[in-house]
Design a binder for these strands. Structure first.
Lengths: 156, 156
DNA sequence: GATGATTTCAGAATTTTATTCGGCGTAAAG
DNA sequence: CTTTACGCCGAATAAAATTCTGAAATCATC
């Protein structure tokens, strides 16, 4: 899909909407220096072309009782397409796995996983992830603290 | 801050708002089976208690010309507080680093980094990240593809 | 159980916001 | 120089959020 070029105003819109997805159109128009009508038109265009994919509320993990977040490096038992597909299909159904990336390097996949506490995490990793047949091994990195977690991508 | 317990309706609200942060209050109220007034009241309460932290637009990385995303495992030259603080402070100022987590395991920090292309990435890693004095070594995992990237945390 | 206090809800009124519409100015193409 | 297309503004309309009042339900206490 050919995406028409984005001018400075579009960049600014994207930057603002990434950091505040609930800003009103009136305020948005003020910040970029246009009237509400063309502002809305631009935002709709960004949505319709798929440049803006979606909007999400971000919740406080700890406050809802999810005290543990980890990265898990997964090595599979082989690299045939069928093995990878099998793994991905299983992963889809596990809600605690919130990210799954196929990566280069010393492992095959990198997962981001959340759990209530270490005990819950242990159960998940031992009884769900390590039980997947095609998984040869896993290595966990527990997140001690997060210093940066921006939702704003710097658009080149 | 003592967060009052969340009932089933709150859970449903959080689930819906995580997957669709721009749903209208009217529609939200229909989906949870309440009238608009108490629905809004609950959402405001979730916002004011900080359970809902913020709202964000998600944009299509590739469509805005950000073709590369990586995870970088960083090992520092030591573990004194001053070293870590120095590292974190530098990281803050680099917009291409969108996540920075202090982790357990074979490395000290795990970064999520975006760049326009491999060439840009190489410049960033060599001229910015590896140039930080306290960084002893880095190891990059390039994301080949992402199979899961949900914004919806399963609330226990 | 009964009672009073507190919370939660629904429905209507009000305010704010989004959305649409017609027309103006500008710039590129003919 | 004219034409076309595009993006903008400002006002009008439609939709949504927000507020308010009172009723129902829940809970703790007696």
């Amino acid at each position: 899909m050919a995406v028409g070029k984005l001018d400075q105003i579009d960049h600014k819109l994207l930057e603002i909407l990434q950091s505040n997805g609930k800003i009103t159109n009136a305020q948005l128009s003020k910040e970029i220096g246009l009237s509400p009508a063309p502002t809305l038109e631009r935002v709709k265009k960004l949505e319709n072309t798929g440049i803006i994919e979606s909007y999400h509320a971000q919740i406080d993990r700890e406050k809802v009782g999810l005290g543990v977040m980890t990265f898990v490096q997964v090595t599979l038992s082989g690299h045939r397409k069928s093995i990878t597909e099998s793994f991905v299909k299983t992963i889809e159904a596990v809600p605690e796995i919130i990210e799954c990336h196929h990566v280069t390097g010393s492992c095959d996949f990198l997962l981001k996983v959340i759990a209530r506490d270490i005990a819950s995490y242990q159960t998940l990793i031992m009884e769900t992830i390590n039980e997947i047949e095609v998984v040869a091994s896993t290595q966990t990195m527990v997140i001690l603290s997060t210093f940066k977690n921006t939702k704003v991508l710097p658009i080149p």
